[in-house]
Protein backbone atom coordinates (compact mmCIF):
# COMPACT_ATOMS: atom_id res chain seq x y z
CA UNK A 1 0.00 0.00 0.00
CA UNK A 2 1.20 3.48 -0.79
CA UNK A 3 -0.19 4.82 2.49
CA UNK A 4 1.48 2.39 4.84
CA UNK A 5 5.06 1.75 5.86
CA UNK A 6 6.69 -0.43 3.17
CA UNK A 7 7.82 -3.95 3.93
CA UNK A 8 11.35 -4.26 5.22
CA UNK A 9 12.69 -5.36 1.84
CA UNK A 10 11.22 -2.58 -0.28
CA UNK A 11 14.54 -2.13 -2.08
CA UNK A 12 14.18 -5.59 -3.66
CA UNK A 13 15.19 -5.83 -7.34
CA UNK A 14 13.04 -4.06 -9.94
CA UNK A 15 10.84 -6.26 -12.15
CA UNK A 16 11.90 -7.02 -15.71
CA UNK A 17 9.03 -5.09 -17.38
CA UNK A 18 9.75 -1.98 -15.39
CA UNK A 19 13.49 -2.26 -16.07
CA UNK A 20 12.83 -2.38 -19.82
CA UNK A 21 10.49 0.61 -19.58
CA UNK A 22 12.96 2.72 -17.60
CA UNK A 23 15.84 1.77 -19.91
CA UNK A 24 13.89 2.76 -23.01
CA UNK A 25 12.80 6.02 -21.34
CA UNK A 26 16.37 6.82 -20.30
CA UNK A 27 17.72 6.16 -23.81
CA UNK A 28 15.02 8.41 -25.22
CA UNK A 29 15.83 11.15 -22.69
CA UNK A 30 19.51 10.99 -23.64
CA UNK A 31 18.56 11.09 -27.32
CA UNK A 32 16.37 14.18 -27.04
CA UNK A 33 19.02 15.85 -24.90
CA UNK A 34 21.66 15.28 -27.59
CA UNK A 35 19.23 16.53 -30.23
CA UNK A 36 19.23 19.97 -28.60
CA UNK A 37 22.84 20.98 -29.35
CA UNK A 38 22.75 18.94 -32.58
CA UNK A 39 19.76 20.85 -33.87
CA UNK A 40 21.27 24.12 -32.75
CA UNK A 41 24.21 23.55 -35.14
CA UNK A 42 22.42 21.82 -38.01
CA UNK A 43 18.93 23.33 -37.94
CA UNK A 44 18.54 26.50 -39.92
CA UNK A 45 16.71 28.59 -37.33
CA UNK A 46 17.62 29.43 -33.74
CA UNK A 47 16.39 32.13 -31.41
CA UNK A 48 18.96 34.93 -31.69
CA UNK A 49 20.90 35.90 -28.58
CA UNK A 50 22.74 39.07 -29.66
CA UNK A 51 21.69 41.64 -27.08
CA UNK A 52 22.88 45.06 -25.89
CA UNK A 53 21.88 47.15 -22.92
CA UNK A 54 20.40 50.45 -24.00
CA UNK A 55 18.42 53.26 -22.38
CA UNK A 56 14.92 53.71 -23.84
CA UNK A 57 15.77 57.35 -24.80
CA UNK A 58 18.87 56.20 -26.68
CA UNK A 59 16.93 53.53 -28.53
CA UNK A 60 14.17 55.98 -29.39
CA UNK A 61 16.77 58.41 -30.80
CA UNK A 62 18.50 55.71 -32.90
CA UNK A 63 15.12 54.60 -34.25
CA UNK A 64 14.01 58.18 -34.97
CA UNK A 65 17.23 58.80 -36.95
CA UNK A 66 16.72 55.54 -38.84
CA UNK A 67 13.10 56.43 -39.66
CA UNK A 68 14.01 59.96 -40.81
CA UNK A 69 16.77 58.62 -43.07
CA UNK A 70 14.86 55.79 -44.79
CA UNK A 71 11.21 56.87 -44.65
CA UNK A 72 9.28 56.19 -47.87
CA UNK A 73 5.66 56.87 -46.85
CA UNK A 74 2.98 56.49 -44.23
CA UNK A 75 0.42 53.82 -43.41
CA UNK A 76 -2.39 54.58 -40.94
CA UNK A 77 -0.28 57.33 -39.42
CA UNK A 78 2.74 55.05 -38.92
CA UNK A 79 5.87 55.85 -40.97
CA UNK A 80 6.79 53.27 -43.62
CA UNK A 81 10.52 52.67 -43.80
CA UNK A 82 12.65 50.80 -46.30
CA UNK A 83 15.91 49.82 -44.60
CA UNK A 84 19.03 49.19 -46.68
CA UNK A 85 19.41 45.48 -47.52
CA UNK A 86 22.09 43.91 -45.39
CA UNK A 87 21.90 46.80 -42.94
CA UNK A 88 20.34 47.67 -39.61
CA UNK A 89 16.64 48.18 -39.08
CA UNK A 90 14.82 49.34 -35.95
CA UNK A 91 11.45 48.41 -34.54
CA UNK A 92 10.13 50.31 -31.53
CA UNK A 93 7.48 48.81 -29.27
CA UNK A 94 5.53 51.10 -26.97
CA UNK A 95 2.01 51.10 -25.55
CA UNK A 96 0.23 50.27 -27.81
CA UNK A 97 1.96 50.40 -31.19
CA UNK A 98 4.88 49.14 -33.24
CA UNK A 99 6.87 51.73 -35.20
CA UNK A 100 7.74 51.90 -38.08
CA UNK A 101 6.11 49.73 -40.76
CA UNK A 102 9.05 47.92 -42.38
CA UNK A 103 9.42 47.28 -46.11
CA UNK A 104 11.89 44.46 -46.63
CA UNK A 105 13.21 42.67 -49.69
CA UNK A 106 12.94 38.95 -50.15
CA UNK A 107 16.24 37.10 -49.81
CA UNK A 108 18.04 40.02 -48.16
CA UNK A 109 19.39 39.82 -44.62
CA UNK A 110 18.65 42.50 -42.05
CA UNK A 111 19.77 43.14 -38.51
CA UNK A 112 16.47 44.01 -36.87
CA UNK A 113 16.91 45.82 -33.55
CA UNK A 114 13.88 45.60 -31.28
CA UNK A 115 13.31 47.19 -27.89
CA UNK A 116 10.55 48.64 -25.76
CA UNK A 117 10.16 52.20 -24.53
CA UNK A 118 7.95 51.24 -21.61
CA UNK A 119 6.57 47.81 -20.67
CA UNK A 120 7.47 44.28 -21.70
CA UNK A 121 5.96 43.45 -25.09
CA UNK A 122 5.70 40.44 -27.34
CA UNK A 123 6.74 40.20 -30.99
CA UNK A 124 4.56 37.67 -32.76
CA UNK A 125 4.99 37.61 -36.54
CA UNK A 126 1.80 36.55 -38.31
CA UNK A 127 1.03 34.35 -40.23
CA UNK A 128 4.37 32.52 -39.93
CA UNK A 129 3.92 32.37 -36.13
CA UNK A 130 7.35 33.33 -34.85
CA UNK A 131 7.47 34.73 -31.34
CA UNK A 132 10.07 36.71 -29.37
CA UNK A 133 10.16 38.85 -26.26
CA UNK A 134 10.77 42.59 -26.31
CA UNK A 135 12.13 44.00 -23.06
CA UNK A 136 12.78 47.61 -22.05
CA UNK A 137 16.48 48.55 -21.58
CA UNK A 138 17.61 45.76 -23.92
CA UNK A 139 18.28 45.94 -27.65
CA UNK A 140 17.51 42.49 -29.02
CA UNK A 141 19.08 41.97 -32.46
CA UNK A 142 17.15 39.57 -34.68
CA UNK A 143 19.12 38.68 -37.79
CA UNK A 144 16.39 37.87 -40.30
CA UNK A 145 16.18 36.89 -43.94
CA UNK A 146 12.62 36.95 -45.34
CA UNK A 147 12.16 33.99 -47.66
CA UNK A 148 8.62 34.68 -48.88
CA UNK A 149 7.05 37.91 -50.04
CA UNK A 150 3.78 39.08 -48.57
CA UNK A 151 2.06 41.17 -45.95
CA UNK A 152 2.98 40.27 -42.40
CA UNK A 153 1.55 41.45 -39.11
CA UNK A 154 3.28 41.88 -35.78
CA UNK A 155 1.02 41.19 -32.82
CA UNK A 156 1.96 41.98 -29.27
CA UNK A 157 1.46 38.79 -27.28
CA UNK A 158 2.69 39.90 -23.87
CA UNK A 159 0.12 41.69 -21.72
CA UNK A 160 1.07 45.38 -21.60
CA UNK A 161 -2.00 47.15 -20.25
CA UNK A 162 -5.65 47.52 -21.13
CA UNK A 163 -5.07 48.43 -24.82
CA UNK A 164 -2.75 45.45 -25.38
CA UNK A 165 -5.06 43.70 -27.88
CA UNK A 166 -4.88 46.67 -30.28
CA UNK A 167 -1.11 46.59 -30.54
CA UNK A 168 -0.49 45.45 -34.12
CA UNK A 169 2.33 46.39 -36.49
CA UNK A 170 3.15 45.53 -40.07
CA UNK A 171 6.02 44.25 -42.23
CA UNK A 172 5.80 43.94 -45.99
CA UNK A 173 8.21 41.81 -47.98
CA UNK A 174 8.56 42.35 -51.74
Amino acid sequence: MSISVPETYWWKPVDREEKIWVTVALIWCIFITLMMPYWHFTGKQNPPWETYKIKPEQFEKLAADFIAKHKVGEDNGIPVVEPPPGGDAFLVASTWKFEPVLKLQKGQTYRLHVSSLDYQHGLSIFPINMNFMILPDYDYVLTITPTESGDYRIMCNEFCGIGHHNMVGKITVT
Binding site: S124, P127, R153, C156, N166
Partner: peptide, 20 residues
Amino acid sequence: GFGVPRRHWDITFTDAIFKV
Protein backbone atom coordinates in the same frame (compact mmCIF):
# COMPACT_ATOMS: atom_id res chain seq x y z
CA GLY B 1 -0.60 26.76 -33.47
CA PHE B 2 -2.08 29.36 -35.80
CA GLY B 3 -0.50 32.13 -33.72
CA VAL B 4 -3.53 33.07 -31.62
CA PRO B 5 -2.00 34.93 -28.65
CA ARG B 6 -2.70 34.21 -25.00
CA ARG B 7 -4.09 36.91 -22.68
CA HIS B 8 -5.92 38.71 -25.47
CA TRP B 9 -9.30 40.39 -25.31
CA ASP B 10 -10.15 40.53 -29.01
CA ILE B 11 -8.64 38.21 -31.60
CA THR B 12 -10.89 39.75 -34.27
CA PHE B 13 -8.77 42.95 -33.90
CA THR B 14 -11.80 45.21 -34.44
CA ASP B 15 -10.10 48.38 -33.16
CA ALA B 16 -6.53 47.69 -34.27
CA ILE B 17 -5.02 49.85 -37.03
CA PHE B 18 -3.82 46.80 -38.95
CA LYS B 19 -6.18 43.86 -39.28
CA VAL B 20 -5.16 40.28 -38.55
